[in-house]
Amino acid sequence: MLDRQYLLTDDQVLSFINYGYHLVEPDFAPGFNEAVLQELRQIKQDPGNAILEAVPQLQEVYNHPMVRGALISLLGADMTMNGHRHCHTNLPGSQSQGWHQDGTNVRHHQVWTVLAMYYPQDVPPEMGPTAVVPGTHFRNAPTDRMVNYANLKGQVFLTVKAGTVAITHYDLWHAATLNRTEQARYMLKFLFDRRSAPTTPSWNHDPIEGPVIATSRFSEMIGPSGGYSSDYYKEWELRMELWNWLTGSTAAVPPGAFKDMLS
């Protein structure tokens, strides 16, 4: 049974709803990340889904209570590790990927799967950090239509310290970037799935304060548009819809609901 202190707060869940990602910095034992990195460097052939068998210490990453607490908060207490996982090795001299969403274009405004990306080494800007675009998990964009973007306003590079686990909504736009250093950058991408629709909040929810914080955060300006465009008001409603769903509410968000959030 996980201690509730490791669950997310209302504010953290709302931040995930708006931005589409949450960073966890677990307090691993000294030398843990370095040991994992050493193991990864010994791998001669990409083991694909068998990376967990090749480097068993990785299980400790995803068993860490801070990581489990965040995953349970977003996916429910019965969440489970998906069978697909991969060690992404960004080699020196690489070029950036194009922006993309994983999977096909069957999207929804719920949280059924997240990526949990573990970085066993410090990732400075020169080492090919993962790039994400906050708020884009609400978008349904075929990859072919994204090829003409390069740098996007509001993009965030995950320049993280060793041991960080970046939990992202499955639909968040992301890309690996160019590695200018002489060292390979490793990122372990594990997927976690929700097994049942939420019936009650699975985080440290305050039924009095939570809705107040939610109302104040739905209107945040984030991401590339970052202002008054048609999409901005739609995002308010999509955020509200996701919040309702995560809290277990069956209340629909009617078209034009954003007007009730105007101050």
Partner: peptide, 26 residues
């Protein structure tokens, strides 16, 4: 309207267009 993305394609052999963490401004 404000710019939100920019990608230049220079007509020289070997040029590439990509997401660059060291480029701070559009």
């Amino acid at each position: 309207s404000p710019l939100i993305s920019s990608a230049s394609h220079e007509p020289v052999p070997g040029s590439i267009t990509q997401i660059d963490p060291l480029v701070e401004e559009l």
